[in-house]
Structures are given as C-alpha cells and as structure tokens.
Measured scan of single mutants.
Amino acid sequence: MTFKLIINGKTLKGETTTEAVDAATAEKVFKQYFNDNGIDGEWTYDDATKTFTITE
C-alpha cells in the first residue's frame, strides 16, 4: 500500500510517499524521516486516505 506524508513545517514543506505493508510500518518510516530532517510537530493520520500530516 502507498502512504502519503504531507509536511507543513516552518522550514520544510512538501509531500512524499512510501510503500508499506500497513500504517504502523509507514509511521516508523515517516518518523525516521522527521528525525533525519529535524522536523518536530503535531501529526495526524487519516486512514481513509492513508495520509499522515505533520505540522510544526
């Protein structure tokens, strides 16, 4: 399955996707992406659209 990440950061904005077997696996991938890029904020997940959103 394809999961999308929408980034609404102070310095970084955009979208990316990842292929994962489930939302929990995608969450781990995206959290690592947050850490690697110094993004910290509030994030949500919409199961209907398989979209994670992080807002700094």
Rank of each mutant, 00 (worst) to 15 (best):
G38H: 12
G14H: 13
I54M: 12
T25N: 07
F52W: 05
D40Q: 14
W43S: 02
V29D: 04
K4I: 12
E19S: 10
I6D: 01
E15P: 06
D36H: 09
D47K: 06
T55A: 05
A24Y: 09
T49G: 03
N35V: 14
A20T: 04
D47M: 07
W43Y: 05
T25R: 05
G41Q: 05
A26S: 01
Y33T: 04
K50L: 12
A26K: 01
G41K: 04
I7C: 11
I39V: 08
F34T: 15
I7H: 03
K31I: 10
A24I: 08
F3W: 04
F30L: 03
K13F: 11
T51G: 00
F34D: 01
F52T: 00
N37S: 13
G9K: 10
K31M: 11
N35H: 13
T18V: 14
F30S: 00
G38I: 12
A23V: 09
Q32R: 11
D22F: 03
Y45C: 01
D22L: 02
L5M: 05
F3V: 02
K28C: 08
A26V: 02
T51E: 03
K28A: 12
A20D: 02
T53D: 01
A23I: 06
D47Q: 09
V29S: 05
I54F: 15
N35D: 13
D47N: 07
T17K: 07
K31L: 09
N37R: 14
I6F: 05
T53I: 07
D46P: 00
I7P: 00
T17Y: 14
D22P: 01
T18F: 14
T11I: 12
T2K: 09
E15T: 10
M1G: 08
K10D: 06
D47A: 13
I7Y: 10
L5N: 01
D46N: 09
A48Y: 10
F30K: 00
G38P: 12
A23F: 09
D46F: 03
D40C: 13
E42A: 10
W43A: 02
K4C: 08
A24Q: 10
K50T: 03
A20M: 02
K4V: 12
G14W: 15
I39G: 06
I7E: 01
F34K: 12
A48C: 07
T16E: 06
T44D: 07
D40Y: 14
E56F: 14
V29K: 09
K50D: 01
K31R: 14
A24P: 07
G9Q: 06
M1F: 15
D46R: 02
N35C: 11
M1N: 09
D36V: 11
F3A: 01
T44V: 08
N8S: 07
T49F: 04
E56N: 05
A48T: 11
A23K: 13
T55V: 09
A23D: 02
K28T: 08
I39T: 05
E19N: 12
Y45K: 00
G14N: 08
G38T: 09
K50I: 02
K4Y: 14
K31H: 06
F34A: 15
D36I: 12
K4G: 02
T49N: 05
Q32A: 12
Y33G: 03
T44H: 10
V29T: 08
A23T: 05
V29W: 13
E15R: 06
I6T: 03
K28N: 07
D22S: 05
E56W: 13
D46I: 04
L5V: 09
